[in-house]
Amino acid sequence: MTEAQLSTMDGSRGEIAVYRWPHPTATHRVLLVHGYGEHLGRYDHVAAALHAHGAEVVGPDHLGHGRSAGERVLVPSFDDVLADLRAVADRAGTDLPVVLVGHSMGGMIAARYAQLHGAGLTSVVLSGPVLGSWAPVALADGEIPDEPLDVSTLSRDPAVGERYAADPLIWHGPFKRETLRALGRCLDEINTGPRLTPPTLWLHGADDQLVPIGPSRAGIDRIRGDRFEQIAYPGARHEIFNETTNTAVLADVTRFIAGTLPTG
């Protein structure tokens, strides 16, 4: 697989960085959506697994994240993030079936995107998604602690936490109050929005302490459609794509996607 090609485009609130992992004979396109505080450059191995099964992979760093413009992790409205994601999808083209894959906050974004634009999606994969409710949202109305993330909650592989802590493109500071309020509004919109029409796979670590499985399960149960699969991984923490069992997780993802692609 070739390395990611980086480009930029005008976003809702400034220039956004766009990653593309091209495939010369792609059978489908995966729109990949990263989580809070991080960036899409952490997903090379995910793109490689998807690429090996015929996918071209594209996605942005969200505004205020990674290589994109904006005050770090400041998201006044997720409508802007959704508009940027739609612009990336439109620029990539409509020549291939499109699969949406989102992790953590990116899973929340992907769920809302699927509610709004489900007719243009072949399937959706949600990894440890922030759905239903999320405890940090309540901090928006009180004191926001300035404590670093406990990187041991990411994965049972300590190297994952070490790389996270050393990554200068990752935000290591406190939540922004405006972002937490925007997260709460987006969750409310999802909770009261339509059920998902594309086939959907929900994946979650059973020992996820950052986005606990219970509230996420309640959230997905509220919006899931008729074509739905779910897998909970015993002992797995938040970043299941970076877990000690990530090969099996990514195999579950590519198996599911293959079963949703058009045949013939």
Rank of each mutant, 00 (worst) to 15 (best):
Q5W: 07
Q5E: 09
S7R: 13
T8I: 00
M9R: 12
M9G: 07
M9N: 06
G11Y: 01
S12Q: 07
Y19N: 12
P22T: 06
T27N: 11
H34Q: 11
H39Q: 03
A47M: 06
G54H: 02
V57S: 08
D61W: 01
E71Q: 10
F78V: 02
D79E: 13
D80W: 09
L85E: 00
L85T: 03
D90W: 05
R91A: 10
R91V: 09
A92F: 07
V98L: 14
G102S: 03
S104L: 01
G106A: 01
G106S: 02
A111L: 00
A114D: 00
Q115W: 14
Q115C: 12
G118K: 10
G120V: 08
V125K: 00
S127P: 00
P129L: 04
G132H: 04
P136V: 00
A138W: 02
G142I: 12
E147V: 13
V151C: 10
A159P: 08
V160D: 07
A165Q: 15
D167A: 15
D167P: 15
G173Y: 14
K176H: 10
R177A: 12
R177Q: 14
E178G: 15
T179R: 01
R181F: 11
A182H: 04
G184K: 11
R195Y: 14
P198H: 15
A206G: 14
A206K: 07
Q209R: 11
Q209T: 11
L210I: 07
I213C: 04
A218W: 07
A218S: 13
R224V: 04
G225K: 03
D226C: 14
F228C: 04
Q230R: 15
G235Q: 09
R237L: 05
F241K: 02
T245G: 02
N246C: 15
T263S: 09
T263R: 07
